[in-house]
Structure formats: C-alpha cells, structure tokens
Design a protein around this nucleic acid. Sequence first.
RNA 1: GGCGACGUGGCCAAGUGGCAAGGCAAGGGUCUGCAAAAUCCUGAUCACCGGUUCAAAUCCGGUCGUCGCCUCCA
Length: 481
Amino acid sequence: MTLEVFNVLSRKKELFKPVAEGRAHMYVCGPTVYDQSHIGHAKLYLSMDVIVRYLRYLGYQVRYVQNITDVGHLLDTGEDRIMRGVRRERLEPMELTERYTRLYFEDMDALGVLRPDISPRASGHIPEQIELAQQLIERGHAYHVNGSVYFDVPSWPGYGRLSGRRLEESEAGARVSVLDEKRHPADFALWKRADAEHILQWSSPWGRGYPGWHAECTAMATKYLGQPFDIHGGGLENMFPHNECEMAQAEASAGVPFANYWLLAGSLTIDGVKMSKSLGNSVTIKDALARWRPEVIRTFILSSHYRSPVDFTEEAVNAAGRGWERLNGAANLVRQQLRSAGDGAVDPEFSRFLDGQRAAFEEKMNDDFNAPAAMGVLHDLTRQVNTLLNAEQPANRPTLELIDRFYRDTAGAVLGILAEERARATNAVREAGLIQLLIELRQQARQEKRWAEADQIRQTLRELGVALEDRPDGTVSRIIG
RNA sequence: GGCGACGUGGCCAAGUGGCAAGGCAAGGGUCUGCAAAAUCCUGAUCACCGGUUCAAAUCCGGUCGUCGCCUCCA
C-alpha cells in the first residue's frame, strides 16, 4: 500500500517518491501578516496540516517550512495592506507584522494546526533574494532597469507549465497598468526600486529597494529544503501568477526542477461567494472559534477533499458538528469504560475488525489524502464500537485499549479531531469531582424515585454544558457545545 | 474574452467503467422512569442533451449553471 498524490504539475495522481528515502520536504506559502486570519486561511493550512500529519503517520521524517510574509510591497497605490494596517494601528511596520504573526500562530494553535518546523521571515532573507536576482541576471533570465530587476519571462520557455497558461493568452494589464520599463508585460519584479516613502527598504547592488513579489518563497524554500525538494503546497488561487513565477525563478536560476509535487488546496467561499472585505462577509478564525469548537471546524473542513472548494455555511458546519459528536462520543465512552474495565483477552473478532478498518483508513488516506472518505471509515468503525460498548457483556480492558489506540492514531494524530483530554488542569480535576458528586446525588434520587429532583440536576448541568446519559452500567457525563 | 475547478438523495459529501460510501436532517421500531445517547429499518435512474462500450455518475462532444484565477493581496 503506497501513497499516491495528485500532482498539479502533471494533473494526475503519482506515486509519492521523496528525494531522500524516508524524508519528506515540504514548503507551503504562508500568510501575509497584516490583519487577522480568516476562515479561508483555516481551510488552506488545515488541509496542509493533515497532509503533514499523515506523512508523519506513515513514518516520514518531515521538514515543513512555511514562510511569514512580513515584507510589504509598500508602495502605496491605495491598496497596500501593510501600509493600511500601519496607519490603522499607528504602528511600525515590523511591529504590525509581529503582532499579526503572533495572532496567526495563536489561531493555528487553537485549531490544532501543527506548527511548521521552520517559519522563515521574508525580512530575514533579503540577501538570499538579492542573490537570486543576481543569479538570474547572470544566466540571462533577468534584466536591470532603473534600480529594479525583472524576470525576463519570454526567455524562459518553462513559464506556464504549472498553471497551463500561455503567454499570448494573458491579457496584458488586465488589472494593473503595465509599467513601461518592463520589456514584456508578463515580466515580473525580482527587486523593486524604493522611493523615499517606502518604509521598509534595503541596500542592493541596484540601489535602495525591496524584494519582488515572488522572490521570498523561492529563496527560502530552496535554502531550507534544497532543490529539487518534494512537496510544494498552497492554495489553488495562487497557482497563477505566484506559484508559476516562483517555479520559473527557481528553475531558471538553478537549472534543476524546483519542487517535484505540487499539492494545491481548493478555496473557500462563504454562502457561495468569495470572502472579501468589500463584501463584508469575512469570518475570522476567532469569530468561528467563538461559535464552534476547533474539532468541529476541523471536521467540517476535512469533510470535503482538500482539492475541492468548500462553501462555509452555518448549516453545513452545524451538521459536521453533530457528526463529530457521534465520533467523539464513542471515543470518549471508550475512555470512560476503560477506567473500570476488567481484565481479559483481546476479543479476536474485534481485533481483526480493527485491523481491517485501519487498512481501510490507510487506503483512503493513501489515495491523495482522502480525509472525507477516511472519516467515513471512522464512522463505520464507530457503529461497531457503539454496538460493542452497549452489549450486555462489558468489553474488557485489552479490547478497549485497542480501540482507544485506533482512535488516537487516526482521528487524533492524523485528522486532529479528537477532543483533548483536559484532565491536567487543577480546575478540570475539581470540576470532574463536582460532576461526579452530582451524578451520585442524582443516582440516589433516582433510586428513591424522586424523579423531579433527578431531572433538575440533569437539566441544570445541561444548561452549564454538561450532558448526563444514563446507561445500564451507570451514568456518564459529556461536555457539550 | 482566456485559463482552471465544480454540478451526486432535503443539506454536506466519497466514489473516475461493472449492482451509488459516510454524516446531518426526516419518519418508523428497539432500549429507557423520563430524557439523552446508541442501534435497526425507510430514500438517488449522479445538471441537461448526444456519442463510445456488453456495461458510464465515471470516457468523448455539446448545452446550461456555479465558483476561482487572469501579473505585484502572498
């Protein structure tokens, strides 16, 4: 059983073969840190997170690099976001980007997105970007004009290979007026001359300036991952021009391929339309977290394939949430029963069943990280688990441990949708004790058929977010909402 | 206009040649003091039209519709 990934470069599924046996080097274009992260970022980085997690599950030693774009393209044409942020908050540019870098990590941590192994800042890699531009000039794929350096697109026949675009097809200046100093409208900046009002600028062989649009990703990806490296991830919406330009720069300067596999995630819409500030429909990650727990947001996003577009609607997230409760409820009940389970031998039939389900889970994930199908396997499994947990014969410890292991490995380590146990904090210990006391008081009331009292305890706890469920073998509690 | 993705039951969604996974919602049953949870049962000619094939949601052509991108937001 082997991993196959859909490579955007070839537009088909290919066997994953890393450059170095047992290792996986992966780069993903990170955020520009000028404002709060929104749910679209969550979709992208969550998709990539599960890819990284599964590669690790398979035993690959992963090096995951994701840049932080803190170098603004500060020429204020009225749309520059970093400048806008700087004015809005009256901060130094680096103060602004530092603030939003921290918030970004905070949001990702909250969503259970594992941190990249390296988070290089563009501002910390100016020399590498200058060097890239120099190499391209030396190789005849870039030229210097008035303090700026442009990539000479017509000189590089590979341009367009990723996005499938041909030069003639693009309408020059469709959105932005063409600068006349460029030789060809498709040429793009590697280094830009800085005017006096630019706040962030650096010295270069061509005078004061700042790096071009795509330079940082090329420079940092190859610096930390080598060239070629294994996987370049990102969002489909950046395939052109950003990814295309990155690749052209890298390959034209080094003469070898850039990344072997391009894995691009589908984008996210809200109620059917693109999220944008001007439409006023953006949802920040903090907004979403205020409404749903992180595991539910993950379940929702992972319920469609990473390459597919996702439409974020209240109804869909709620439905995903209820599905998550079923999975998590079963995993939770396994843990609760484990506390009082008796010894015994592993149920051989159930053990075989689990082996089959694990193979099925891996088969789905091996097929281009098909998380929604893998989640389907977990639901099938959960039906059997629930049946076992509700059987007259209580399951024994070794069998429960196997099931627990299964949930932790798949729903937990790979998909990241298992609720964290929060038994560590002292408050949580105290809370668990209080809940247990109430369960016992209610149990007495029930035995004495004082139903009103019993129901009141249950109702009040429910309003506080704790659901009680009476089972033949006792009452269990579940944190809800 | 160009490039690309997509259109599967009320909703979400897997499935790329061989009787259409799974979740949510709905109805019915079991269990239960009640409730909740769980479990069982019930539902789709896969946007439309034409073609290829013994066989198509799946391949080819066309139509309609939705979304994304088209050079400095990375």
